[in-house]
Design a binder for these strands. Structure first.
Lengths: 202, 202
DNA sequence: TAGATTGTTAATCGATTAACAATC
DNA sequence: TAGATTGTTAATCGATTAACAATC
Protein backbone atom coordinates (compact mmCIF):
# COMPACT_ATOMS: atom_id res chain seq x y z
CA UNK A 1 0.00 0.00 0.00
CA UNK A 2 1.31 3.46 -0.85
CA UNK A 3 1.47 6.31 1.64
CA UNK A 4 -1.27 8.05 -0.32
CA UNK A 5 -3.76 5.20 -0.02
CA UNK A 6 -3.20 4.82 3.73
CA UNK A 7 -3.58 8.57 4.27
CA UNK A 8 -6.83 8.61 2.33
CA UNK A 9 -8.22 5.56 4.11
CA UNK A 10 -7.68 7.22 7.46
CA UNK A 11 -9.61 10.26 6.25
CA UNK A 12 -12.51 8.05 5.14
CA UNK A 13 -12.44 6.58 8.62
CA UNK A 14 -12.97 10.01 10.17
CA UNK A 15 -15.91 10.80 7.87
CA UNK A 16 -17.48 7.43 8.58
CA UNK A 17 -17.04 7.78 12.35
CA UNK A 18 -18.64 11.23 12.34
CA UNK A 19 -21.45 10.19 10.00
CA UNK A 20 -22.25 7.30 12.27
CA UNK A 21 -22.45 9.69 15.21
CA UNK A 22 -24.95 11.76 13.25
CA UNK A 23 -27.10 8.65 13.04
CA UNK A 24 -26.46 7.74 9.40
CA UNK A 25 -26.46 4.08 8.34
CA UNK A 26 -25.03 4.30 4.85
CA UNK A 27 -23.03 6.70 2.73
CA UNK A 28 -22.14 7.09 -0.95
CA UNK A 29 -18.69 7.70 -2.39
CA UNK A 30 -19.96 11.12 -3.48
CA UNK A 31 -20.85 12.09 0.08
CA UNK A 32 -17.41 11.07 1.32
CA UNK A 33 -15.96 13.06 -1.57
CA UNK A 34 -17.85 16.19 -0.52
CA UNK A 35 -16.38 16.06 2.97
CA UNK A 36 -12.82 15.12 2.06
CA UNK A 37 -12.27 16.87 -1.28
CA UNK A 38 -11.07 13.53 -2.61
CA UNK A 39 -12.55 12.51 -5.94
CA UNK A 40 -15.43 10.01 -5.69
CA UNK A 41 -13.90 7.71 -8.31
CA UNK A 42 -10.67 7.67 -6.35
CA UNK A 43 -12.56 6.67 -3.20
CA UNK A 44 -14.38 3.82 -4.93
CA UNK A 45 -11.15 2.63 -6.40
CA UNK A 46 -9.24 2.80 -3.11
CA UNK A 47 -11.92 0.67 -1.49
CA UNK A 48 -12.30 -1.80 -4.33
CA UNK A 49 -8.59 -2.59 -4.04
CA UNK A 50 -9.47 -4.46 -0.87
CA UNK A 51 -12.84 -5.99 -1.70
CA UNK A 52 -16.38 -5.22 -2.80
CA UNK A 53 -17.68 -3.31 0.19
CA UNK A 54 -20.52 -1.36 -1.42
CA UNK A 55 -23.92 -2.09 -2.92
CA UNK A 56 -24.66 -0.65 -6.37
CA UNK A 57 -27.47 1.84 -6.30
CA UNK A 58 -27.25 2.04 -2.50
CA UNK A 59 -23.77 2.97 -1.28
CA UNK A 60 -21.67 1.69 1.60
CA UNK A 61 -22.92 0.46 4.97
CA UNK A 62 -21.14 2.68 7.49
CA UNK A 63 -20.62 0.09 10.22
CA UNK A 64 -19.28 -2.55 7.92
CA UNK A 65 -17.02 -0.12 6.05
CA UNK A 66 -15.65 1.21 9.35
CA UNK A 67 -14.76 -2.34 10.27
CA UNK A 68 -13.13 -3.07 6.94
CA UNK A 69 -10.96 0.06 6.98
CA UNK A 70 -9.94 -0.47 10.59
CA UNK A 71 -8.94 -4.00 9.69
CA UNK A 72 -6.94 -2.77 6.69
CA UNK A 73 -5.17 -0.08 8.71
CA UNK A 74 -4.82 -2.39 11.73
CA UNK A 75 -6.21 0.24 14.05
CA UNK A 76 -8.55 -2.03 15.91
CA UNK A 77 -6.33 -2.33 18.93
CA UNK A 78 -5.52 0.37 21.43
CA UNK A 79 -2.41 2.44 20.88
CA UNK A 80 -0.62 4.21 23.70
CA UNK A 81 0.78 7.67 23.10
CA UNK A 82 2.63 10.17 25.30
CA UNK A 83 1.82 13.86 25.44
CA UNK A 84 4.57 16.25 26.49
CA UNK A 85 3.49 19.71 27.64
CA UNK A 86 0.50 20.41 29.89
CA UNK A 87 0.02 24.06 28.94
CA UNK A 88 -3.02 25.37 27.12
CA UNK A 89 -2.34 23.41 23.95
CA UNK A 90 -1.51 20.24 25.88
CA UNK A 91 -4.70 20.60 27.91
CA UNK A 92 -6.73 21.11 24.75
CA UNK A 93 -5.23 17.98 23.17
CA UNK A 94 -5.68 15.87 26.30
CA UNK A 95 -9.33 16.79 26.68
CA UNK A 96 -10.22 16.28 23.02
CA UNK A 97 -12.27 13.16 22.30
CA UNK A 98 -10.63 12.86 18.89
CA UNK A 99 -7.89 10.41 19.89
CA UNK A 100 -10.12 8.17 21.98
CA UNK A 101 -12.61 7.91 19.13
CA UNK A 102 -9.96 6.27 17.01
CA UNK A 103 -8.65 3.88 19.64
CA UNK A 104 -5.70 6.04 20.61
CA UNK A 105 -5.04 6.28 24.34
CA UNK A 106 -3.07 9.14 25.90
CA UNK A 107 -1.20 6.98 28.36
CA UNK A 108 0.93 9.68 29.96
CA UNK A 109 1.17 13.47 30.11
CA UNK A 110 4.50 15.06 31.05
CA UNK A 111 5.49 18.55 32.10
CA UNK A 112 8.55 20.13 33.70
CA UNK A 113 6.60 22.71 35.71
CA UNK A 114 6.22 21.58 39.38
CA UNK A 115 3.02 23.67 39.55
CA UNK A 116 1.42 21.44 36.94
CA UNK A 117 2.73 18.04 38.05
CA UNK A 118 -0.02 16.06 39.75
CA UNK A 119 -2.91 18.04 38.29
CA UNK A 120 -5.65 16.22 36.43
CA UNK A 121 -5.61 16.52 32.65
CA UNK A 122 -7.94 14.49 30.44
CA UNK A 123 -8.17 11.11 32.14
CA UNK A 124 -4.60 11.36 33.45
CA UNK A 125 -2.68 13.39 35.93
CA UNK A 126 0.43 15.29 34.90
CA UNK A 127 3.68 13.43 35.48
CA UNK A 128 7.12 14.90 36.13
CA UNK A 129 9.08 14.97 32.92
CA UNK A 130 12.07 13.43 34.68
CA UNK A 131 10.18 10.14 34.77
CA UNK A 132 9.66 10.19 31.00
CA UNK A 133 12.28 7.59 30.00
CA UNK A 134 11.04 5.11 32.55
CA UNK A 135 7.31 5.58 31.80
CA UNK A 136 7.74 5.53 28.03
CA UNK A 137 9.63 2.25 28.22
CA UNK A 138 7.27 0.64 30.71
CA UNK A 139 4.17 1.46 28.67
CA UNK A 140 5.81 0.59 25.37
CA UNK A 141 4.97 3.98 23.88
CA UNK A 142 6.12 4.62 20.32
CA UNK A 143 4.25 7.87 19.62
CA UNK A 144 5.03 11.22 21.24
CA UNK A 145 3.05 14.43 20.87
CA UNK A 146 5.02 17.64 21.45
CA UNK A 147 3.01 20.51 22.88
CA UNK A 148 5.96 22.43 24.29
CA UNK A 149 7.54 25.80 23.40
CA UNK A 150 9.74 25.81 20.29
CA UNK A 151 12.93 26.36 22.28
CA UNK A 152 12.61 23.10 24.18
CA UNK A 153 11.13 20.99 21.37
CA UNK A 154 14.42 19.48 20.17
CA UNK A 155 15.51 18.58 23.68
CA UNK A 156 12.23 16.84 24.46
CA UNK A 157 12.29 15.10 21.07
CA UNK A 158 15.76 13.73 21.83
CA UNK A 159 14.57 12.38 25.12
CA UNK A 160 11.54 10.70 23.53
CA UNK A 161 13.69 9.15 20.81
CA UNK A 162 16.21 7.96 23.37
CA UNK A 163 13.40 6.10 25.12
CA UNK A 164 12.23 4.30 22.00
CA UNK A 165 9.65 6.64 20.45
CA UNK A 166 9.51 6.34 16.64
CA UNK A 167 6.72 8.76 15.65
CA UNK A 168 6.61 12.40 16.77
CA UNK A 169 3.78 14.85 16.32
CA UNK A 170 5.30 18.29 16.55
CA UNK A 171 2.92 21.11 17.46
CA UNK A 172 5.71 23.65 17.91
CA UNK A 173 7.17 25.80 15.12
CA UNK A 174 10.59 24.23 15.67
CA UNK A 175 12.30 22.14 13.00
CA UNK A 176 13.38 18.84 14.50
CA UNK A 177 16.52 16.92 13.63
CA UNK A 178 15.85 13.20 13.97
CA UNK A 179 17.31 9.91 12.69
CA UNK A 180 16.13 8.52 9.35
CA UNK A 181 13.90 5.84 10.85
CA UNK A 182 11.80 8.33 12.83
CA UNK A 183 8.65 9.92 11.42
CA UNK A 184 8.04 13.56 12.28
CA UNK A 185 4.68 15.08 11.54
CA UNK A 186 4.70 18.85 11.97
CA UNK A 187 1.33 20.46 12.31
CA UNK A 188 1.32 24.05 11.22
CA UNK A 189 -1.99 25.79 10.66
CA UNK A 190 -0.32 28.95 9.36
CA UNK A 191 1.35 27.02 6.55
CA UNK A 192 -1.94 25.47 5.50
CA UNK A 193 -3.57 28.86 5.64
CA UNK A 194 -1.01 30.43 3.34
CA UNK A 195 -1.74 28.17 0.44
CA UNK A 196 -5.49 28.22 1.06
CA UNK A 197 -5.27 32.02 0.86
CA UNK A 198 -3.30 31.87 -2.36
CA UNK A 199 -6.14 30.16 -4.16
CA UNK A 200 -8.66 32.54 -2.74
CA UNK A 201 -6.66 35.57 -3.84
CA UNK A 202 -6.17 34.24 -7.35
CA UNK B 1 0.02 26.89 -10.40
CA UNK B 2 -1.38 23.59 -9.12
CA UNK B 3 -2.60 23.10 -5.56
CA UNK B 4 0.38 20.82 -4.98
CA UNK B 5 2.98 23.42 -5.89
CA UNK B 6 1.36 26.10 -3.71
CA UNK B 7 1.12 23.71 -0.77
CA UNK B 8 4.78 22.78 -1.11
CA UNK B 9 5.93 26.39 -1.46
CA UNK B 10 4.20 27.28 1.79
CA UNK B 11 6.04 24.44 3.51
CA UNK B 12 9.37 25.68 2.18
CA UNK B 13 8.43 29.06 3.61
CA UNK B 14 8.07 27.57 7.08
CA UNK B 15 11.44 25.82 6.90
CA UNK B 16 13.13 28.99 5.65
CA UNK B 17 11.53 31.15 8.36
CA UNK B 18 12.64 28.74 11.09
CA UNK B 19 16.13 28.30 9.64
CA UNK B 20 16.52 32.07 9.54
CA UNK B 21 15.57 32.23 13.22
CA UNK B 22 18.27 29.68 13.95
CA UNK B 23 20.74 32.11 12.43
CA UNK B 24 21.34 30.35 9.12
CA UNK B 25 22.08 32.37 5.98
CA UNK B 26 21.75 29.77 3.26
CA UNK B 27 20.23 26.34 2.79
CA UNK B 28 20.43 23.53 0.22
CA UNK B 29 17.53 21.74 -1.42
CA UNK B 30 18.67 18.61 0.45
CA UNK B 31 18.33 20.33 3.81
CA UNK B 32 14.82 21.51 2.98
CA UNK B 33 14.07 17.95 1.84
CA UNK B 34 15.19 16.53 5.19
CA UNK B 35 12.75 18.74 7.09
CA UNK B 36 9.77 18.43 4.78
CA UNK B 37 10.04 14.87 3.44
CA UNK B 38 9.70 16.37 -0.03
CA UNK B 39 12.23 15.11 -2.57
CA UNK B 40 15.17 17.48 -3.16
CA UNK B 41 14.77 17.31 -6.95
CA UNK B 42 11.12 18.24 -6.59
CA UNK B 43 12.09 21.27 -4.50
CA UNK B 44 14.67 22.47 -7.02
CA UNK B 45 12.19 22.02 -9.79
CA UNK B 46 9.38 23.83 -7.97
CA UNK B 47 11.68 26.79 -7.41
CA UNK B 48 13.18 26.82 -10.89
CA UNK B 49 9.67 27.18 -12.34
CA UNK B 50 9.78 30.75 -11.09
CA UNK B 51 13.39 31.74 -11.65
CA UNK B 52 16.98 30.86 -10.85
CA UNK B 53 17.09 31.54 -7.15
CA UNK B 54 20.02 29.34 -6.14
CA UNK B 55 23.79 29.30 -6.64
CA UNK B 56 25.33 26.07 -7.85
CA UNK B 57 27.71 24.56 -5.32
CA UNK B 58 26.34 26.89 -2.63
CA UNK B 59 22.58 26.59 -2.22
CA UNK B 60 19.86 29.18 -1.69
CA UNK B 61 20.15 32.46 0.22
CA UNK B 62 17.47 32.23 2.88
CA UNK B 63 16.47 35.90 2.93
CA UNK B 64 16.18 36.21 -0.80
CA UNK B 65 14.33 32.90 -1.19
CA UNK B 66 11.89 33.91 1.55
CA UNK B 67 11.17 37.09 -0.39
CA UNK B 68 10.70 35.24 -3.67
CA UNK B 69 8.28 32.67 -2.26
CA UNK B 70 6.30 35.33 -0.41
CA UNK B 71 6.03 37.26 -3.65
CA UNK B 72 4.90 34.14 -5.52
CA UNK B 73 2.30 33.26 -2.88
CA UNK B 74 1.33 36.92 -2.41
CA UNK B 75 1.65 36.63 1.33
CA UNK B 76 3.57 39.82 1.85
CA UNK B 77 0.58 41.81 3.07
CA UNK B 78 -1.24 41.33 6.34
CA UNK B 79 -4.26 39.07 6.37
CA UNK B 80 -7.01 39.38 8.95
CA UNK B 81 -8.55 36.24 10.38
CA UNK B 82 -11.24 35.60 12.99
CA UNK B 83 -10.96 33.02 15.74
CA UNK B 84 -14.16 31.61 17.23
CA UNK B 85 -13.88 29.93 20.61
CA UNK B 86 -11.81 31.21 23.54
CA UNK B 87 -11.50 27.92 25.41
CA UNK B 88 -8.20 26.10 25.91
CA UNK B 89 -7.68 25.41 22.23
CA UNK B 90 -8.67 28.95 21.24
CA UNK B 91 -6.28 30.38 23.83
CA UNK B 92 -3.48 28.16 22.58
CA UNK B 93 -4.07 29.28 19.01
CA UNK B 94 -4.35 32.95 19.91
CA UNK B 95 -1.12 32.94 21.87
CA UNK B 96 0.88 31.03 19.27
CA UNK B 97 3.42 33.12 17.33
CA UNK B 98 2.90 30.93 14.28
CA UNK B 99 0.30 33.08 12.55
CA UNK B 100 2.04 36.41 13.20
CA UNK B 101 5.30 35.01 11.81
CA UNK B 102 3.61 34.54 8.46
CA UNK B 103 1.86 37.91 8.31
CA UNK B 104 -1.47 36.57 9.52
CA UNK B 105 -3.25 38.76 12.08
CA UNK B 106 -5.89 37.42 14.44
CA UNK B 107 -8.17 40.44 14.16
CA UNK B 108 -10.97 39.23 16.41
CA UNK B 109 -11.70 36.45 18.92
CA UNK B 110 -15.31 35.51 19.61
CA UNK B 111 -16.98 33.47 22.33
CA UNK B 112 -20.53 33.00 23.55
CA UNK B 113 -19.59 32.62 27.21
CA UNK B 114 -20.20 35.90 29.13
CA UNK B 115 -17.46 34.83 31.55
CA UNK B 116 -14.91 34.96 28.78
CA UNK B 117 -16.09 38.07 26.95
CA UNK B 118 -13.78 41.00 27.66
CA UNK B 119 -10.83 38.89 28.80
CA UNK B 120 -7.46 39.35 27.14
CA UNK B 121 -6.38 36.65 24.70
CA UNK B 122 -3.29 36.97 22.54
CA UNK B 123 -3.19 40.65 21.57
CA UNK B 124 -6.99 40.92 21.57
CA UNK B 125 -9.81 40.80 24.03
CA UNK B 126 -12.64 38.32 23.63
CA UNK B 127 -15.68 39.73 21.84
CA UNK B 128 -19.30 38.65 22.23
CA UNK B 129 -20.19 36.25 19.46
CA UNK B 130 -23.37 38.20 18.76
CA UNK B 131 -21.23 40.95 17.24
CA UNK B 132 -19.60 38.48 14.82
CA UNK B 133 -21.50 39.45 11.64
CA UNK B 134 -20.78 43.13 12.15
CA UNK B 135 -17.09 42.73 13.06
CA UNK B 136 -16.36 40.24 10.28
CA UNK B 137 -17.84 42.59 7.70
CA UNK B 138 -16.15 45.71 9.08
CA UNK B 139 -12.71 44.10 9.13
CA UNK B 140 -13.18 42.40 5.80
CA UNK B 141 -12.31 38.99 7.23
CA UNK B 142 -12.42 36.05 4.84
CA UNK B 143 -10.82 33.39 7.06
CA UNK B 144 -12.44 31.88 10.14
CA UNK B 145 -10.82 29.46 12.59
CA UNK B 146 -13.22 27.22 14.51
CA UNK B 147 -12.09 26.24 18.00
CA UNK B 148 -15.53 25.38 19.34
CA UNK B 149 -17.15 22.10 20.45
CA UNK B 150 -18.30 19.80 17.67
CA UNK B 151 -21.97 20.33 18.43
CA UNK B 152 -21.88 24.04 17.71
CA UNK B 153 -19.38 23.95 14.81
CA UNK B 154 -21.95 23.90 12.00
CA UNK B 155 -23.94 26.75 13.51
CA UNK B 156 -20.85 28.94 13.89
CA UNK B 157 -19.69 28.02 10.40
CA UNK B 158 -23.04 29.11 8.97
CA UNK B 159 -22.75 32.43 10.74
CA UNK B 160 -19.22 32.99 9.44
CA UNK B 161 -20.25 32.10 5.89
CA UNK B 162 -23.26 34.40 6.11
CA UNK B 163 -20.91 37.25 6.95
CA UNK B 164 -18.67 36.68 3.96
CA UNK B 165 -16.02 34.22 5.20
CA UNK B 166 -14.69 31.95 2.41
CA UNK B 167 -12.05 29.83 4.16
CA UNK B 168 -12.72 27.86 7.35
CA UNK B 169 -10.20 26.07 9.51
CA UNK B 170 -12.11 23.47 11.46
CA UNK B 171 -10.45 22.25 14.67
CA UNK B 172 -13.52 20.32 15.80
CA UNK B 173 -14.31 16.73 14.83
CA UNK B 174 -17.55 17.84 13.17
CA UNK B 175 -18.11 17.47 9.43
CA UNK B 176 -19.20 20.79 7.97
CA UNK B 177 -21.69 21.29 5.17
CA UNK B 178 -20.71 24.36 3.17
CA UNK B 179 -21.34 25.79 -0.30
CA UNK B 180 -19.07 24.78 -3.19
CA UNK B 181 -17.08 28.03 -3.23
CA UNK B 182 -15.97 27.72 0.40
CA UNK B 183 -12.75 25.97 1.41
CA UNK B 184 -12.85 23.89 4.58
CA UNK B 185 -9.64 22.67 6.07
CA UNK B 186 -10.22 20.12 8.83
CA UNK B 187 -7.32 19.53 11.15
CA UNK B 188 -7.41 16.14 12.73
CA UNK B 189 -4.30 14.87 14.49
CA UNK B 190 -5.86 11.46 15.15
CA UNK B 191 -6.37 10.87 11.43
CA UNK B 192 -2.76 11.73 10.70
CA UNK B 193 -1.66 9.48 13.50
CA UNK B 194 -3.57 6.49 12.16
CA UNK B 195 -1.76 6.38 8.89
CA UNK B 196 1.60 7.19 10.48
CA UNK B 197 1.02 4.19 12.74
CA UNK B 198 0.13 1.96 9.83
CA UNK B 199 3.57 2.39 8.31
CA UNK B 200 5.25 1.85 11.61
CA UNK B 201 3.34 -1.38 12.22
CA UNK B 202 4.08 -2.74 8.76
C1' DT C 1 -39.34 -0.77 -14.24
C1' DA C 2 -36.69 3.56 -13.16
C1' DG C 3 -33.25 5.71 -10.58
C1' DA C 4 -29.07 5.54 -8.23
C1' DT C 5 -24.50 4.20 -7.32
C1' DT C 6 -20.83 0.84 -7.45
C1' DG C 7 -16.81 -1.32 -9.66
C1' DT C 8 -13.79 -0.87 -13.46
C1' DT C 9 -11.60 0.71 -17.71
C1' DA C 10 -8.95 3.95 -20.26
C1' DA C 11 -6.84 8.29 -20.90
C1' DT C 12 -4.46 12.16 -18.96
C1' DC C 13 -1.92 14.70 -15.81
C1' DG C 14 1.16 15.81 -12.09
C1' DA C 15 4.66 13.89 -8.78
C1' DT C 16 8.66 11.34 -8.08
C1' DT C 17 13.12 9.88 -8.91
C1' DA C 18 17.79 9.14 -10.89
C1' DA C 19 21.19 11.05 -13.36
C1' DC C 20 24.28 14.51 -14.80
C1' DA C 21 26.12 18.62 -17.13
C1' DA C 22 26.74 23.30 -15.71
C1' DT C 23 28.87 26.19 -12.59
C1' DC C 24 29.70 28.35 -8.11
C1' DT D 1 41.66 22.70 -8.91
C1' DA D 2 38.32 19.84 -6.19
C1' DG D 3 34.00 19.54 -4.05
C1' DA D 4 29.37 20.76 -3.77
C1' DT D 5 24.94 21.83 -5.41
C1' DT D 6 21.91 23.80 -8.76
C1' DG D 7 18.99 23.53 -12.94
C1' DT D 8 17.20 20.35 -16.20
C1' DT D 9 16.21 16.17 -18.77
C1' DA D 10 14.11 11.75 -19.21
C1' DA D 11 11.79 7.86 -17.45
C1' DT D 12 8.50 5.97 -14.28
C1' DC D 13 4.83 5.85 -11.18
C1' DG D 14 0.67 7.10 -8.79
C1' DA D 15 -3.39 10.28 -8.79
C1' DT D 16 -7.09 12.16 -11.18
C1' DT D 17 -10.90 12.19 -14.05
C1' DA D 18 -14.65 10.88 -17.32
C1' DA D 19 -17.36 7.45 -18.78
C1' DC D 20 -20.23 3.56 -18.43
C1' DA D 21 -21.77 -1.24 -17.90
C1' DA D 22 -23.30 -3.87 -14.04
C1' DT D 23 -26.60 -4.24 -10.62
C1' DC D 24 -28.97 -3.04 -6.34
Amino acid sequence: MTVGVAARLSRYLQVLAQSKKMGKDRISSQEIADYTNINATQIRRDLSNFGKFGKRGVGYNIDSLLGEIRRILRTQGQHNIALVGAGRLGQAIASSPIFAEHGINIAAVFDNDPERVGRAIGSQSVTDIRTLPQVVREKNIIVGVLAVPADSAQQVADELLGSGVKIIFNYSEALLDVPQDVTVHTSNPAVDLLHALYFHLT
